[in-house]
């Protein structure tokens, strides 16, 4: 049986604290008008928080390589869906005189 990692209790509290601070930061940042940067910041913080949960609460940090691949492929396929679909919407009207 592969040894499952048992993390020290303190680690969970530290991660928890980071998540709460992250939440506070997003709320604060949303109050300031930074233009497009608002979105970037918001998503960056959300991604960081999600990463913390996945790595430490869900123990991916100690997971097998296969688990990393599984998780990665999930997000990668999401990216395929977003990017190819948006490639349609963002290039609409590039042919002059048409909507396509």
């Amino acid at each position: 049986m592969t040894e499952h990692h048992i993390a020290p209790r303190g680690m969970y509290y530290v991660v928890f604290l980071a998540l709460i601070i992250g939440t506070g930061l997003t709320v604060a940042a949303a109050e300031v008008d930074l233009g497009a940067l608002n979105n970037v910041l918001m998503l960056a913080i959300a991604c960081a928080k999600a990463l913390l949960v996945i790595l430490f609460f869900m123990h991916l940090r100690w997971g097998t390589r296969l688990t990393w691949v599984v998780v990665g492929s999930g997000f990668f396929w999401l990216l395929i869906m977003f990017s190819l679909t948006m490639s349609d919407y963002m290039s609409r009207g590039w042919v002059e005189g048409t909507l396509r």
Partner: peptide, 17 residues
């Protein structure tokens, strides 16, 4: 929980300013 971590800013916070 992770789903909510994304839902919260995308739904609640984009109108902040």
């Amino acid at each position: 929980d992770i789903v909510w971590i994304f839902l919260f800013p995308l739904l609640y916070l984009i109108g902040g300013h």
